[in-house]
Write a protein that binds this DNA or RNA. Structure first.
Lengths: 200, 200
DNA sequence: TGCGAGTTAGTGAATACTAACTCACTCTCC
DNA sequence: GGAGAGTGAGTTAGTATTCACTAACTCGCA
């Protein structure tokens, strides 16, 4: 069930509003104004706000997951290359959407809304599973099992997302971003690293 | 201005409520019930909700920053050891509070509330500055400048926080956590890593 | 007696959602 | 081809709920 043209227009406006001023500013009234008609008209296109949010998340997932699956399954690439490609794509999506995914996650965490967290969590779990498939090929590193390592590759996108929304003054250029992504994935996929000195 | 005993009691209950069911569930009414009296009585102790939230954040900062400063300034330790200690302490605080810091960050991001984001951002900036002091001693790594590297050490706590609140079923033991922290800091502080193969 | 710390009862604003209506457009039947 | 029914998509006006916050009171106590 792909969105109708009108639904797509609504989703576009909703994403704009959220990118501009956060999810709390996405009220049905403000969204209707942005689209250019009145509040009750929105309910002709979506049965309620949670359906609207779910559609937004599904749309984001559609921009994230298929490419992820493609990269994760590309056996011409080494596991390291695949992880690099996956993190790169995730970060690129974050930057292109001004941190939209992390805003949905933030809203889910802050509100405790079950449905919302189920939508967001569903996408994230599939993402983590894909990472886990690839880290499994690398094997455990530093005593950390493959599926725990997958969590680590969530770390950089999370940090980038936080920077985007909370510290826009620390903006990273495309080049800096690419360097950081490479440095990050490269470092975390080294076959063996020397043990650090014990801390007190 | 340390909190009065009654204020401390209120802050305790507020932290409990948030840990249990998210910041959206922290209403003045529910908080009053939890403390054991009625809503208007709260206003005898805090002039409003934002003052209450600010006090909660300041309290969290008080549990995070002094230890951070101590570790960052301990010149008996190598920079790697200091970073390890700082990340370890941050992660320990997250786990002890069931992800409280990331919930405040999430609320700030989702709500777009200026005052709240100023409180949260203030603590985070001081944290990032301390990390930056230490990464500066390490010098640039993989073409990433010292202050950009500081962002990276936000990545693991962020990932751990997300796991705590969004995927409690993936809970990490203390031992696993310590291994992950060590692996993470160790990997990201290697003096030089071989370049990864270029991805298409 | 004055004050700190509670109470009851209530206000106003914001929000998701709804009821009932209008109106243009299309399809059908003659 | 045109009258009439049905429908999709908008409108105005309103409801119920939830929230932070307040006014005005009570009560125990130094």
């Amino acid at each position: 069930m792909p969105p109708t043209p009108r639904q797509a227009e609504i989703l576009d406006c909703a994403a704009e509003l959220v990118a501009e001023s956060g999810l709390a500013q996405l009220t049905m009234k403000r969204l209707a104004e942005r689209v250019g008609f009145t509040e009750p008209a929105l309910y002709r296109h979506y049965p309620g706000k949670s359906a609207l949010l779910a559609a937004m998340i599904e749309r984001l997932g559609g921009r994230l997951l298929p490419t992820m699956e493609e990269i994760a399954g590309d056996r011409r690439l080494t596991p390291r290359e695949r992880l690099l490609g996956m993190v790169r794509h995730h970060v690129a999506l974050l930057r292109a959407t001004r941190g939209l995914p992390i805003l949905f996650l933030a809203e889910g965490l802050a509100s405790g809304d079950r449905d919302l967290m189920a939508s967001v969590g569903g996408v994230m779990r599939r993402y983590l599973a894909l990472l886990g498939v690839v880290t499994a090929e690398l094997g455990p590193a530093g005593g950390v099992s493959a599926d725990r390592q997958a969590l680590l590759f969530l770390g950089l996108p999370a940090a980038i997302g936080i920077q985007l929304r909370a510290f826009p003054d620390l903006a990273l250029s495309d080049e800096e971003t690419e360097l950081i992504v490479q440095h990050y994935v490269r470092s975390l996929t080294l076959p063996a690293a020397p043990a650090p000195e014990k801390s007190s």
